[in-house]
Write a protein that binds this DNA or RNA. Structure first.
Lengths: 144, 144
DNA sequence: TTTAAATAGGATAAATTTGTCCGAAATAAA
DNA sequence: TTTATTTCGGACAAATTTATCCTATTTAAA
């Protein structure tokens, strides 16, 4: 469904959000430990999220990654997915046709539209706040 | 969503089904031309489909790939996807956790279940017959 | 039985994704 | 201002996926 990079990016974002509620910045080392991901690779993905203004980085001593508290509830999963994987998952044809639309549909065009709309709607209606909160209360987990 | 191999596999299966209704066997060359896919790679995927008894191959002169007419309506997309990509798309965690279940869920566990159930149901309820028919009547297409 | 035609399958290569390493640049605190 | 700490960014490496090529094997027809 998503690339590894995107999975790590979502998990990292949730972890950063949770810590930002506690006023704590976190390092790639800490993040990768807590979400169980390769550190250097995760650091690369964090750079992408910074470039897309989804998370904030602070260099130097006592630096790290954070998200403005006010911002957390406004960040949707769709933004993270699009920043890392692009919008292919919504837009590209389920059977890989370069051009697939209502006028020139692949054999599963209609059937896929509803699936993808469902996914899109879900990602657009899920924000980091609720996900971070579930981590905080121990309802859900970021690693096995 | 699916791998390239799986996209080619589905498109190839539909094309073979359509031709089998006309009593015609088709070669990897013809298939790859008609679904616009790399020939040798497509041939490899056909071998996988043969191994899984989804399509039939006939060697030698006047050979090629076909599907028993009686069989076409019973082949579901889910069988093709599982043969090529496995059942990860249904079963594996949306955020990549090795172990993700109701007792130990990832943050998007519940939200993903409905999406994936929808996909699974769709794949399990779509058979090659209806897809091949749409190609035959020019309602849908296998290449751009 | 011979031959031509077709799939099967192994070896290999290219492209993409995933992952690592290390020095440069920035920054807060001493 | 200096120093320690931290992210940034480029180069590189490994793994996986995608793709190609060539020979062996099979098989139906002549």
């Amino acid at each position: 469904m998503f690339s590894k990079a995107c999975e790590y990016g979502i998990r990292a974002s949730i972890f950063i959000a949770k810590n930002s509620y506690d006023g704590k910045r976190v390092s790639p080392k800490k993040i990768s430990e807590e979400i169980n991901s390769p550190q250097a690779f995760t650091a690369k993905i964090l750079q992408v999220l910074v470039k897309h203004d989804i998370i904030k980085s602070v260099k130097g001593a006592y630096g790290g990654f954070e998200i403005d508290k006010k911002h957390i509830a406004t960040i949707k999963l769709s933004q993270i997915v699009e920043a890392i994987d692009g919008d292919n998952i919504y837009k590209s044809c389920g059977l890989g046709l370069k051009k697939c639309n209502d006028k020139h549909p692949c054999p599963v065009h209609d059937k896929f539209i509803s699936i993808r709309e469902g996914l899109k709607t879900m990602l657009e209606n899920t924000n980091l706040e609720e996900l971070a909160l579930d981590i905080k209360t121990g309802v859900s987990f970021l690693k096995t």
